[in-house]
Amino acid sequence: MDPIRIAVVGVGKIARDQHLPAIAGNPAFSLAATVSPHDPGPKGVPHLASLDELIESGPAVDAVALCTPPQVRYELATMALKRGIHVFLEKPPGATLSEVVALRDRAGKVGVTLFAAWHSRFAAGVAPARAWLSERRIEKVSIVWREDVRVWHPGQAWIWEPGGLGVFDPGINALSILTHIMPRAVFLKSAVLSIPENRAAPIAADLSLCDTGGANIHMDLDWRQTGPQSWDIIVETDAGTLKLSSGGAVLSLPSGTEHNEDLEYPGLYARFANLIRGGRSDVDIDPLRLVADAFLRGRRESVAAFHD
Rank of each mutant, 00 (worst) to 15 (best):
V9M: 06
G10Q: 04
K13P: 14
I14T: 07
I14C: 10
H19D: 09
P21C: 01
A22E: 00
G25H: 03
L31V: 13
L31T: 08
P37C: 07
P40Y: 03
P42G: 03
P42Q: 02
K43Y: 07
G44E: 01
V45E: 01
P46K: 07
L48S: 03
L51G: 05
S57H: 09
D62I: 02
V64M: 10
C67E: 09
P69L: 12
V72G: 04
R73I: 12
E75K: 05
L76Q: 05
T78R: 13
L81Y: 02
G84T: 08
I85W: 06
V87W: 03
P93D: 01
G94C: 05
T96F: 02
S98N: 02
E99H: 04
A102Q: 12
A107W: 00
G108A: 04
K109D: 15
V110Q: 09
F115N: 06
W118T: 10
H119V: 15
S120V: 15
A124T: 14
G125P: 04
A127T: 01
A129F: 09
R130F: 03
W132G: 07
W132D: 12
E135K: 13
R136T: 15
I138E: 00
E139T: 13
K140L: 09
S142N: 15
D148W: 13
V149C: 08
P154C: 00
P154A: 08
G155Q: 11
W158Q: 15
I159A: 15
V167N: 11
G171V: 13
L175V: 10
I177G: 04
T179A: 12
I181Q: 01
R184F: 12
A185N: 10
V186W: 01
L188W: 02
V192Y: 06
L193S: 12
N198R: 11
A201T: 15
I203K: 15
D206L: 03
D206R: 15
C210Q: 09
T212K: 06
N216I: 01
I217N: 01
D220G: 00
L221S: 01
D222I: 14
D222W: 07
W223Y: 15
Q225F: 13
T226S: 10
S230H: 11
W231K: 09
I234H: 05
G240C: 14
T241G: 13
L242Q: 07
S245P: 10
S245N: 14
S246G: 10
L253S: 08
E261I: 14
D262Q: 11
L263A: 11
N274L: 11
I276S: 00
R277I: 10
G278T: 07
L288G: 14
V291S: 08
A294N: 03
F295I: 12
R297Q: 03
E301I: 14
E301S: 14
A304G: 13
